[in-house]
C-alpha cells in the first residue's frame, strides 16, 4: 500500500482561528491525543509560526517556548514540528530556541516566488541534523514553472521535501494536479500539499495532489485553521484509507482526538463563510480574515470590498498592515462620495 505522510497543523494553523489564543492546557490535551492516534507530525505555535507573535499579525497568548514545551512533554513517537517564516523568525533568536526545546521537524516557508530567503535557515537546520522542509506559500500566485524553479532552490539548500501551500484556499483540483506534477517531475525529494477549504476544495485538492505524486499532506482536526479552515484531517485519513493509501494513523484514536479538539479547542466550528469565499476569490492569505472583519467594522466599510482591493494589490502573507490602509482609504472615498 502506498504510504502518505500526514502532518497535522491543528495547533498552528488552528491558532489563526482563535486569534492565536490557544492555551498551554489545550495544546497539552491535543498533543496527548495525537500521540495516542499515531499522528506522525504535529505542528505547534503561532499561526504564522516561530517569532510571529506581533501587532502586525496578532499577539499570541503564550510565547513560543510555552507553546512548544506544552506539546513536547506529551510526545514520544509523534514528532513536534514548527513553521518558520524568514523575515519574522531568525536563526539565533527563534530556531535555536526551538531546537533547545526539542523540535524535530521544521518547515521553512516563504512567499512562493522568494525561496532564496530560506537558504540560510534551511541550511542551518540541515546542518544540525533535523528534518527540514521548504514551504512555498500562496502557491496560487505563481505558474507551475516558477514554483518548480523555487522548489528546486529549496532542494539545493538541503530540504528533505517541499510543500506547496494553498494559503488563500484559491486553487482548484486541476491547478493542484498540474503544479504538484511539475514539482514531482523536477525534484528528487518529497513533495507535499497544504490546503485551505475556502472554496470547499480541501479534500479534493489534497487527493489531486496525491494523484499527481505528492507523498505528504497536511490536515487539521475538524478542519481547524485560518479562513475557512484546512483539510479536515479525519475525513482525509478516511478517504485515503478508502483509496488504498496507508497513513499509519489509528483511525478510532484519531476520531477521539478530533472529538477532543471539538470539545476543548474549537470555540467556533470552521465553516465556509461568505467572507471566506470572497477571500479565496480575491486570492488573499486566509490569515487575514479575522483582521479584515475587525477593521471593516471599525471603519464601517464592506469587508468584501476590502478583500478585493487587497487582492488587486497582490498582498502576501505578513502584509496585514495594509488592511488598515485599504479600509481607511475606502472609508475616505465613501465619505467624499456622500
Amino acid at each position: 500500500m502506498p504510504k502518505i505522510l500526514i502532518s497535522d497543523p491543528t495547533l498552528r494553523d488552528g491558532n489563526h482561528a482563535v486569534k492565536h489564543q490557544l492555551t498551554a492546557k489545550q495544546i497539552a490535551a491535543y498533543a496527548s491525543a495525537a500521540e495516542a492516534a499515531h499522528i506522525p507530525i504535529i505542528e505547534v505555535g503561532h499561526g504564522n509560526g516561530l517569532g510571529a507573535s506581533s501587532l502586525q499579525v496578532g499577539e499570541s497568548l503564550h510565547d513560543d517556548a510555552t507553546l512548544l514545551e506544552a506539546a513536547r512533554k506529551h510526545l514520544v513517537k509523534t514528532k513536534l514540528g514548527v513553521h518558520v517564516m524568514p523575515g519574522f523568525a531568525t536563526i539565533s533568536k527563534d530556531i535555536k530556541l526551538a531546537m533547545d526545546i526539542g523540535v524535530d521537524v521544521f518547515r521553512v516557508g516563504s512567499h512562493c516566488t522568494e525561496a532564496d530567503i530560506t537558504q540560510r535557515h534551511i541550511g542551518f537546520i540541515r546542518n544540525k541534523g533535523k528534518e527540514v522542509y521548504g514551504a512555498l506559500m500562496m502557491s496560487h500566485m505563481a505558474s507551475k514553472e516558477v514554483l518548480a524553479e523555487e522548489a528546486y532552490k529549496m532542494q539545493s539548500y538541503g530540504a528533505d521535501g517541499v510543500m506547496l501551500y494553498d494559503s488563500a484556499g484559491a486553487l482548484l483540483p486541476d491547478d493542484v494536479e498540474e503544479k504538484v506534477r511539475e514539482l514531482v517531475a523536477r525534484l528528487n525529494i518529497e513533495v507535499g500539499f497544504h490546503a485551505h477549504n475556502n472554496l470547499g476544495m480541501g479534500i479534493a485538492n489534497s487527493i489531486a495532489a496525491v494523484k499527481a505524486g505528492a507523498t505528504i499532506l497536511d490536515g487539521t482536526a475538524c478542519g481547524f485553521g485560518a479562513g475557512a479552515g484546512n483539510t479536515q484531517l479525519e475525513v482525509l485519513v478516511a478517504v485515503l484509507e478508502k483509496m488504498g493509501y496507508s497513513t499509519g494513523i489509528d483511525f478510532y484514536k484519531l476520531l477521539d482526538a478530533c472529538d477532543l479538539a471539538d470539545r476543548e479547542i474549537l470555540s467556533v466550528i470552521p465553516r465556509i463563510s461568505s467572507i471566506s469565499i470572497v477571500s479565496a476569490l480575491a486570492g488573499v492569505f486566509s490569515g487575514f480574515s479575522k483582521h479584515v472583519e475587525r477593521i471593516s467594522k471599525e471603519y464601517d466599510v464592506d469587508p468584501r470590498e476590502v478583500f478585493f482591493e487587497l487582492g488587486l494589490r497582490k498582498v502576501v502573507a505578513g502584509q496585514e498592515d495594509l488592511i488598515l490602509e485599504v479600509a481607511a482609504a475606502l472609508a475616505g472615498k465613501e465619505k467624499r462620495c456622500a
Binding site: E114, V316, Q319
Partner: peptide, 23 residues
C-alpha cells in the same frame, strides 16, 4: 521591539512601505 520584513513579488512592483506600531 520587533522588526518584520516582507518581500512582495507583485508586478508592477509595489512601492516601499513601512508601518510603525506602538503600545
Amino acid at each position: 521591539t520587533k522588526a518584520i520584513l516582507i518581500i512582495n513579488p507583485a508586478n508592477p512592483c509595489i512601492d516601499m512601505q513601512t508601518t510603525i506600531f506602538a503600545k
